[in-house]
Design a protein around this nucleic acid. Sequence first.
DNA 1: CTTGCAACTGATAAACTTTCTAAGTATCAC
DNA 2: GTGATACTTAGAAAGTTTATCAGTTGCAAG
Lengths: 178, 178
Amino acid sequence: MLACVRSSGLKLTPQRLAIVRELAADPTHPTAQELFERLRPALPTMSFATVYNTLDALASAGLCVALSLSPGASRFDPNMDAHHHAVCDRCGLVRDVPCEPSELLAERSDEIVPGPLTAAPGFEVRAVERIYRGLCAACAKGRQDESAHAAARHAGRSEENNRLRPAGARRARRPEHG
Amino acid sequence: MLACVRSSGLKLTPQRLAIVRELAADPTHPTAQELFERLRPALPTMSFATVYNTLDALASAGLCVALSLSPGASRFDPNMDAHHHAVCDRCGLVRDVPCEPSELLAERSDEIVPGPLTAAPGFEVRAVERIYRGLCAACAKGRQDESAHAAARHAGRSEENNRLRPAGARRARRPEHG
DNA sequence: CTTGCAACTGATAAACTTTCTAAGTATCAC
DNA sequence: GTGATACTTAGAAAGTTTATCAGTTGCAAG
């Protein structure tokens, strides 16, 4: 991937090197904020804007994609092969889900692109993606524990909730496509 | 839908009435900002926060859903039946795409929920949704015109671009799942 | 190895989206 | 009608993302 950075006409700075390495090594599709915080020990002077600039440059070069699949900050995906996503309703975590073999046999190695949508006349379909909504392993386990504790103690809000809710978001939010 | 508002224990205020009516009548899944601006003539004193409060109340009552399918503001969907979405890469517009008959035959009237994901062990799938990415009719036509004009005049950036990009976003953004 | 330019970084401001707070107001059950 | 409660308004505030600009640095050419 680093070679692609150079061949895309992008200069290979220490900041970009660190960001690309961290992004490529992380299957959880981190946000810009997460990348920034993880790299802060190694690059204490790096600006937050540099993280965004770099991710934008990578995306423009076709080396990663910005995902907006749940409220809150965008997540960045270095996997440019055809794949789908599993999105946690609770913490927003995103994991890749490979295409099924039948999909990979399609003409485009990307996704199966069907004919025009009768529901949306004139809409030009470029790609079709699938989103699996639900609870990631950690949140599913967390909820079990929570309800178990809630049964033991009557109503004590004891567990600190580790939901990674969008920034200012404090209220509960109904999951999409309920 | 208005009856549902009352039966959900929500008070039926003029603001809510207007918001519900506007939302239910609009198939394009407007943002909070768009609803606010459209209702401003009828309700000049309505606060922007009221739009958010109302949409949040509706979502919590299960009467609409907040969609985060592209960067920028959330869009609100009053259609609670099982369906998918077509999302415009350029302007962010969202249109509903009904499920196919085969999907509606599934056990849940919602979506076909497959077995556990081998790619994400422990992930509890609640629903599967499909996103058709591409260009809406208006943007597809707009791009044709743009390239036609660009060919005529050599490089004049004459057409004002009507992209509804996320807030501060000025730069071009690579569509997801490129 | 030096040099120069273009691209990049860092810092900050700013725009936008969303939520919170506090005080006043209106809805609805009785 | 009347009161409790939920709602609205307005403004502040927090989080995300982009713009601006001066200073620095990567890197290609010499």
